[in-house]
Simulated assay, not measured.
Amino acid sequence: MTDFKKLVETLDQTTEEDRKLTPKQEQILKAAVEIFAEKGYASSSTSEIAARANVAEGTIFRHYKTKKDLLISIVTPFMTKFTLPFFASHFANKVFEEPPEELEGLLRTLLKNRFEFARENAPLLRIVIQEMAFHPELQERFQDVFLEEIFPKFENALNQLKGKGKLVEIPNTSIIRMIISTVIGFLVTRFIIAPDLNWDDENEIDYTIDFIMHGLAKS
């Protein structure tokens, strides 16, 4: 279950003025996250959100002009920290702050970090996955964050591994694509598609790393 205190910390940058959330905004956003995750954006109504938040519907529109603005206010800070829900500036700094010695160590740090974040924010992950295909604004925000914050640091780490003879000589864009698709597939399956299966998380992380390593590690 999502820790709403952490959720508020994630969402506490929702206005153009970058001001703190009011208590009513916290209620509205919590209710919106729950309902969007349960029903999807298109099938949800602001009246339902208002009822669950225990506020008047007009209160929502005082803070957010439209239902789309409410969605964007939820997803944008989350994507900035998770970017489909995978990368973030603070995460990139942590993962890439030291030159990697081995591909396995880089993958383990990356995967464990995002695993914990996904576990704490599964409803937000569900919203991003559900809505990304239908909202160009979300796609553009994801692309901006990824290309500006993540890709250069990721590529630099891969180049260092190649320089040490620890990585196959194929384009970095292809390597990053394979890593991202594998890790996101793991997280979406674990927390969205089949969260109630009897997972052994430590083993699953090891299996995922082994799967990536088999195709990328230079023998």
Score class of each variant (00 low, 15 high):
residue 67 K to D: 08
residue 153 K to P: 04
residue 70 L to E: 08
residue 61 F to S: 12
residue 48 E to N: 10
residue 95 V to M: 09
residue 73 S to Q: 04
residue 193 I to Y: 10
residue 210 D to K: 04
residue 162 K to R: 15
residue 206 D to T: 14
residue 194 A to Q: 12
residue 9 E to Y: 10
residue 118 A to K: 01
residue 196 D to G: 01
residue 200 D to Y: 06
residue 19 R to V: 05
residue 77 P to H: 09
residue 155 E to K: 14
residue 67 K to H: 09
residue 50 A to S: 13
residue 94 K to C: 12
residue 136 P to L: 05
residue 186 F to H: 10
residue 165 G to F: 01
residue 138 L to R: 00
residue 169 E to D: 15
residue 46 T to G: 06
residue 78 F to T: 05
residue 25 Q to R: 12
residue 41 Y to C: 07
residue 207 Y to C: 05
residue 184 I to W: 03
residue 197 L to C: 06
residue 145 V to D: 05
residue 5 K to G: 09
residue 160 Q to T: 12
residue 147 L to G: 01
residue 20 K to A: 13
residue 1 M to K: 08
residue 193 I to A: 03
residue 115 F to G: 03
residue 121 N to T: 13
residue 37 A to V: 06
residue 44 S to Q: 07
residue 65 K to P: 00
residue 209 I to F: 00
residue 211 F to R: 15
residue 80 T to C: 02
residue 101 E to D: 12
residue 26 E to N: 02
residue 149 E to F: 00
residue 217 A to T: 08
residue 11 L to R: 10
residue 184 I to F: 00
residue 167 L to Q: 05
residue 30 K to T: 14
residue 62 R to F: 05
residue 166 K to F: 06
residue 149 E to T: 13
residue 162 K to V: 03
residue 91 F to R: 03
residue 200 D to M: 05
residue 78 F to L: 08
residue 6 K to G: 02
residue 62 R to M: 03
residue 122 A to E: 13
residue 150 I to M: 03
residue 138 L to Q: 02
residue 74 I to R: 04
residue 50 A to Y: 01
residue 3 D to T: 10
residue 106 L to H: 04
residue 79 M to E: 09
residue 219 S to M: 03
residue 94 K to L: 14
residue 21 L to Q: 08
residue 182 T to V: 14
residue 107 L to Y: 02
residue 94 K to P: 08
residue 81 K to H: 09
residue 22 T to I: 04
residue 108 R to S: 05
residue 115 F to Q: 10
residue 165 G to S: 07
residue 118 A to G: 07
residue 105 G to A: 11
residue 165 G to Y: 02
residue 10 T to A: 06
residue 65 K to E: 10
residue 69 D to A: 09
